[in-house]
Nucleic acid binder design. Sequence first.
DNA 1: CGCAAGTATGTTTGCGATAACATTACCGTG
DNA 2: CACGGTAATGTTATCGCAAACATACTTGCG
Lengths: 350, 350
Amino acid sequence: MNAHYDGGMPRRSPEDRSPSQVDVARAAGVSAQTVSRVISGQSNVRPETARRVMTAVDAVGYRLHAAAASLASGRTRTLGVILVSSDRYSTSAILLGVESVAAESRYTVTTASVPHHSTPASFIEAFERLERQGCEGIVILAPVGYLAEALGTRTERTPTVGHRQADSMGIDALVDQRAIARAATEHLLELGHRSVWHVSGDDFWQESKARREEWEAVLREHGATPPPVLPGDWSPESGYRAGRTLAAIPDATAVFVSSDEMAFGVIRALHEAGRIVPDEVSVVSVDDIALAAYAAPALTTVGQPFEKVGRAAATRVIDMIEKREPSPVEPLHPQLIVRASTARPPAPST
Amino acid sequence: MNAHYDGGMPRRSPEDRSPSQVDVARAAGVSAQTVSRVISGQSNVRPETARRVMTAVDAVGYRLHAAAASLASGRTRTLGVILVSSDRYSTSAILLGVESVAAESRYTVTTASVPHHSTPASFIEAFERLERQGCEGIVILAPVGYLAEALGTRTERTPTVGHRQADSMGIDALVDQRAIARAATEHLLELGHRSVWHVSGDDFWQESKARREEWEAVLREHGATPPPVLPGDWSPESGYRAGRTLAAIPDATAVFVSSDEMAFGVIRALHEAGRIVPDEVSVVSVDDIALAAYAAPALTTVGQPFEKVGRAAATRVIDMIEKREPSPVEPLHPQLIVRASTARPPAPST
DNA sequence: CGCAAGTATGTTTGCGATAACATTACCGTG
DNA sequence: CACGGTAATGTTATCGCAAACATACTTGCG
């Protein structure tokens, strides 16, 4: 760690400075303020003048000095993204969505990764780092359950959006996690399974809880008693452990697994125990990662429109920052993709 | 797209301003400049004074105003990262590495994603966007072959790491891609296979080419003629297509696949064609993603230390920015992980 | 025609930090 | 003990831009 970040650098000499609005102004024969107005797209400028300024901008090769603009205006036009650096796939797709909206609105995106298995402290650290860096809004791609609580009033200072559900805690829901659980569970029930087991995600994550609750609710609606939850943590390993447990339960004919990656583990455990998927046990998971179609058997899974989620999240924070009415957002529906890991339950062997 | 990004915002009134170095100075009974010196860790300050200042910093809740510092010093302390938004999942691990080094050196990281299948133009666009935003250095997590060429002299203005530059600067050079190909190919040869086929990555990527060349070289060293390359693009789908081709070739008993994700596709195609992995065909791939151990069969693969790659890349750009001697970098060795997708070749069926 | 209400532009000031320069305090030495 | 040198601190100018305020120059309407 560099305790001292800078020994000081000499000021650049005036000649090699990059052109400023003053230079543009001179070239265009207007005042610097008018240049500023043209650059920031204000309206009270004659089109003819604006054109002259833009020509001068090109001529002298002017580029807005972000720091100066920020200092003068008190705005940084920066969005922060907190992402969990894990092997989970959704992240980069969401980030792409966030960035493209940000770029359209002339915002910059800075990121703060937290390691895969993180404590509340690392999220707080990341959040504060982004705040320190002057982010005007923050998108959290890891709405861990305790997050709203851990972050406390920080989210009041800085508009914050999470891409998944955090019930009314200021981090808004974008994709309906309950709909995911419902689609998955009902699919299995409709195939004729009497009950559905569940391998949950890390309890840490809010969405994990939402899915579990909805899975329970759906089972109850259909008159089934939810079996105990098999706890997972999103990793394939945890899926494998859950799968071993499950394999030992002859009655179990269907599982709803909270992520594709865990489903890989579950299926392997089942396979090793000699239980055939989907003939003996059906598996539905969530995410539709690229590999889902290449599992053996190919996974039936509930997909989420990740890039759109990112776009929606960014749109929302920007609305909050600029205190606008929330823009209409196209609904983000999860989608069940039926492949080969689900089937009708086996005929009772009696 | 918001053509006009700002209608103008009123200046904040003096009361709700966050504390500045002047406020700290007042509280500590020193000059603002001394506060600045303490904050930026310069040496000519009595320890006692520094302590008083730090106490005052805490007391008034001071935080450095990045934009102001940037304007005054002419430095932004910002690193840009260009990343290809794909399901490939090395990305987030590398990003984490970059960020942690950046944070240690008090740099900020901003990202520019480009879509999965991108033209040179989108890279240039991303690069220029980062330059416009004032990044002092750029890390490109997409060692695309043509990139050095496409970027041209831009990389002279802004220190850049990540593509081949003088053959020693690139990400691809941070981890020896040839060593990866060698480890994989020799492993198969040592098992007794006469020849090894190859499913390549996207030709677009520099590392893809390096691996292919080394695979050829190793085969030649062992007196084998390299069979034609089966072209892939990193996606599981492309692996599947290559796998179908491969399945139709009875002689083929071993493949080196340039990514785990493609290996999933290859194995599925082989399986569908009734060719058993590893009994009839051995498969080695690259990356060691979390799911590699949960493929059926578990993948033998060559792992890369992604996070360390990120750390090394960031360390290097920062060295370049600050015109220091390159810091010593711990060597980044790929590692062969033998699991269940490789075996001795089948006995000749004659 | 005269005056209010805009519209387009210019002038001045301030954002918060730091580089450059100025000053003071303190040291050892011939 | 006067002198030069260095370490610690203070003073001033400046970075590039946009807000606030000031000034021309339009337009519309009674």
